[in-house]
Every structure is written in structure tokens, then in C-alpha cells.
Design a protein around this nucleic acid. Structure first.
Lengths: 186, 186
DNA sequence: GATCGCATGTAAGTGGTTACATGATTTA
DNA sequence: TAAATCATGTAACCACTTACATGCGATC
């Protein structure tokens, strides 16, 4: 990853939708970011403070909601400007690390049955995600209905709707190919 | 990423194909790992020493090839056993960070034209990779012909043959959708 | 009275990158 | 003689995760 602190911009980005607490931000990543972005508490809370020091966000203690400690953050004009500048920069192409592909490329060190099990497991995880997409779609259609981000979220999830089945198809082909290897070898 | 040092096993894995120098290992990642795994020199060289201390690899100075300094490493039985144990463990599902999707999900902060440019750029990169696959296929068919890893490498690259077009298709759909937004808005 | 969800945070460690430094040998 | 390739390595830095710590309020 390059020196640019994408976590910071990701957090600013979430805040562009309105005032939020650290906890709220975390939840956005847990739900919407599920398949393409996430941040841990250890990133969110210190970064919020850092950005407040730099004048990108302001905060206030929300006394209303049950007298519980809850600090809500809001983008400043500076923050929004910084965010937009980053958003306009060209995207870096991600360097994936696909453990399943690494292990498969070293397949000559394992019995075929083990490899098949790995691919089956991968396929199961992909299918799980595919099911989860329905849930996310519902979430978008309810929580984000009519909001400016709605159409963009839909485009993002369409990505997974196309890519997950392609990966699942590869699993099926690969399992078949590995199985035929056993048969031929036997 | 979990605490397990996958870099270490990736390097052991490459060494499972035979005696190699650090430089050779780097080249394997540069070529074969291109789309699914890579390691930098700053990972390879210190890790090789670490593993030699642990008895996973042995090394010798290769005086033959031009009297140049060249240390070649080889897996020990311990190393191979460690590798196999790791290979047998279930794969972790990777947490992607797709910058393009993050930016698109924050699309309400940018003019549509900028978003289209981002997706076009992404599509161009995907197409480049698709072309590069032909090169890799040739490389596998020549350098790895008849070797035990060959069929597994072919399966790995088949993954990209299926996934890249799905992503490209998404780009096309997305660009069309964004363009129609302009037309409707105008 | 226990447990769950809300809410904020930190310590410690590691995984990983970038960029640089060095120098021999081969090829143009 | 310049450039490319072979070959090894380190310093510095930062991004990131895991695991833990804390405590209130609501619900069961």
C-alpha cells in the first residue's frame, strides 16, 4: 500500500454522508464496506482525533441520546475539500493476495483431495457472500432510499453480483478438473 | 492479515520447485505471482536468513555462474514439512480493499464525468491484464512444460480468465449507467 | 442479576512498502 | 562507455490487526 493513508480518506468519505460517531462509522464499514472496505477501531478513533487536530472534522459530545458518552463528528469545509481532492485522484490498482491461488499454484506438494477441499471451502464462502448480497440490497433499499448515495451503492454491489458468480464458476471447473485427475491417475 | 507470516510460506513454496537464489524467487513472484501474490526484496532476503536459522532451508554460494556472488537456497525436510502443514490449513478469505468501489460508493461527492473517468481507467487496466495473460500462458507452456506445477499454474490462470471479463463487463454496465444519469440530468 | 448492545479507546507487535545503496557482468 | 541485467541487501517508516480494557444502559 502506498503512502497516502487511505483509511483517513475512507473515514472522511463516510462522514460526507452526515454527522456520525466513531461507532456509527465502524458500523458503516461493517455493513456497506463488507466486501470492499473495512476499518478497525484502532484505525478509526485515533484517525478521527488526528483529523480534528488538522481541522478536517469537528466534534461535539452528544448529551441527548441517554446521557451516554457519544462524540459525534462532522466534516468541515477543509475536510470536504481534502476528501474531494483524494476522490479525484486516479485509483491505484490493488495487488491482491489470493491465498487459495497461491496454495493451488503449489498444488504439487499436496494430495489432490486436499486441494479439492480447499476449493470447495472457497466456493462455500463465495456462495455465502452471494446470499448476503440480498441482505445488503434490502439494507440499501430501506436505510439509504432516496439518499444521494443510493444509486452509487447499487452500482458497487452490482460489481459483486457479476464477480462472485464468475469465481464460483471457476471453482466448479477447477473441482471438476482436479477430480478428473484422480480418476485418470487411479 | 492474520499472524502467520504468509510471506514466509510463499517463499518456502517457491523453493519447493528446486534450488533458487533470492533473485530467482523475486522473479517467480514478478512473473507467475503477477496477479495473485508478490513479495518485495525487503521480505525475501531477511526471511531467507530467518528460515536458514530455523533450519527450514540451507544455502550455498554458487561459485559456478561467473564467480558472481550468488547464494542459492534449498528446502530442507523440516522446511518442506512446515510448508505442507501450512498448505493443508484452510485458506483465509481475503479482505479486499477496492479503491474504485470505495470511491464510487462516495460518488455523490463528485461530478459524474469524474466517476466515468475512474471506471474507464479501471477498465483499461483490466484489459491490459487480460492481454498479459496470453504472455503468461506462453511462459507456462514453455518454462514449466512437463513440470509437476504446470497443471496447477494453468488452473490458477484460468481464474483470471473468468474473473477479469466479469469485471470488465461491470465496467461497461457502470459506465452506461453513469452516462444515462448525465443525459437524464441534462 | 446476567447478558447484550452501545460506545470509546489503547498497547503491542508485525507485516509490509518504498527507497536507497552497492557492485559485478554482459550487451549494445 | 553506457545501459541493462544479475544479485544482494538495509533503513526507515507506516499501516494495520489483535486483543484487551472500560463502563453505561437496556433488555431478558
Amino acid at each position: 500500500m502506498a503512502r497516502c493513508n487511505k483509511s483517513l480518506y475512507a473515514i472522511l468519505g463516510v462522514l460526507s454522508k452526515g454527522e456520525m460517531s466513531g461507532y456509527d462509522i465502524k458500523n458503516v464499514f461493517n455493513k456497506l464496506g463488507k466486501f470492499h472496505w473495512s476499518e478497525s477501531n484502532a484505525q478509526i478513533y485515533p484517525n478521527l482525533k488526528k483529523m480534528e487536530a488538522k481541522g478536517c472534522v469537528t466534534s461535539r459530545l452528544d448529551e441527548a441520546s441517554g446521557a451516554r458518552q457519544c462524540r459525534r463528528y462532522q466534516l468541515t469545509d477543509t475536510g470536504r475539500q481534502n476528501l474531494i481532492e483524494w476522490l479525484e485522484e486516479p485509483c491505484e490498482f490493488p495487488l491482491y493476495r489470493e491465498e487459495i491461488l497461491l496454495k493451488l499454484s503449489l498444488g504439487h506438494n499436496l494430495p489432490i483431495e486436499k486441494l479439492i477441499a480447499h476449493v470447495e471451502h472457497y466456493k462455500a464462502q463465495l456462495n455465502e457472500r452471494l446470499l448476503f448480497l440480498d441482505e445488503i440490497d434490502k439494507h440499501i433499499a430501506t436505510t439509504h432510499a432516496g439518499k444521494p448515495q443510493q444509486p452509487f451503492l447499487e452500482l458497487v454491489y452490482q460489481h459483486h453480483r457479476l464477480v462472485l458468480p464468475a469465481k464460483i464458476k471457476w471453482c466448479e471447473q477447477t473441482i471438476a478438473a482436479l477430480k478428473s485427475k484422480i480418476t485418470v491417475g487411479a
